[in-house]
Simulated assay, not measured.
Amino acid sequence: MALSNTEQVAAAKANLDAFFEVGGKVFEGVEKLVALNLQVVRSTLAEAQEKFTKAPGSTDPQQWFALQAGFTGPFAEKSLSYGRQVFDIASTTQASVAQVAQAHYERYNGRVQTLVEEAAKNGPAGSEAAIAAWKSMISATTTLCESLQKTAQQAVHAAESNFEAVTATASKAVRSKPEQTPVADGAKR
């Protein structure tokens, strides 16, 4: 299909711009996620190196087990923090993409409404029913899109609330868990 008039070229350009804008937002989110993962790997390796350099110096088994137990508490807290940051990146990216999509939808909807108004002005006699049907369809589509957007926002807010509740509970559980160290002489607890 050849692009024969300026409206088709403008529409194609707008669609291409929307594609690149959404792609840019997604790429920014991926970039943030990669940076977060690199930061986590660096800090984990540095902490592991620190712990393992201390381990050979400990000749007492209890001290060695205490060093090993020191991995679990900070690991759980850092895992929770990592999960929160990943969720923040994902929700921010989703909100940015939704905002771009909404803006492009509103522009497209405006163009369609202008087209329908022009058709109503220049339409032949008796076309009023068809124009009314078009307007009704546009109104129904707009209502559906708004409803879907509200539902998506409610789902994101519910997911955020649930995630925060789960991480708060897990964080409390990690903090309240007593440090377990082995008992000397193989005695049982």
Results as ranks from 00 to 15, higher is better:
Y108G: 15
G70N: 06
L33R: 10
S81N: 11
V34F: 07
Q63K: 15
A55W: 09
R84I: 01
E47Q: 07
L67Y: 09
F87I: 01
A11W: 04
G57W: 08
A69Y: 03
F87C: 01
Q8V: 11
F20M: 06
Q8D: 12
G23Y: 01
Q85S: 07
Q62T: 08
F71R: 06
A46S: 08
Q49L: 15
S91M: 10
K32W: 03
V9K: 11
G57S: 14
S91D: 13
E50Y: 05
Q99I: 05
R107W: 09
V86K: 01
G29S: 01
N109H: 11
S58F: 11
E106A: 10
F19R: 00
S81A: 13
Q62V: 15
D60E: 08
Y82V: 14
L80N: 05
T59V: 13
V30W: 10
K32Y: 04
A48T: 06
R111H: 15
T6R: 11
T72C: 10
P74F: 05
S58E: 12
F27M: 10
E21Y: 03
N109I: 04
W64V: 13
K51I: 11
T44V: 09
K13M: 07
Q39I: 05
L3N: 09
R42Y: 08
L36A: 02
F65C: 09
T59G: 10
A46I: 09
L16V: 04
P56S: 03
T93P: 02
Q94R: 12
T93V: 04
A14E: 12
N37K: 06
D88H: 02
R42A: 12
Q49E: 09
F65Q: 10
D17S: 06
Y108S: 14
S81T: 07
E21G: 01
L16R: 00
D17C: 06
A18M: 05
A18I: 01
K13V: 14
A98K: 02
A69W: 00
G83R: 03
A10H: 03
G110A: 15
H104G: 09
Y108V: 13
F27P: 03
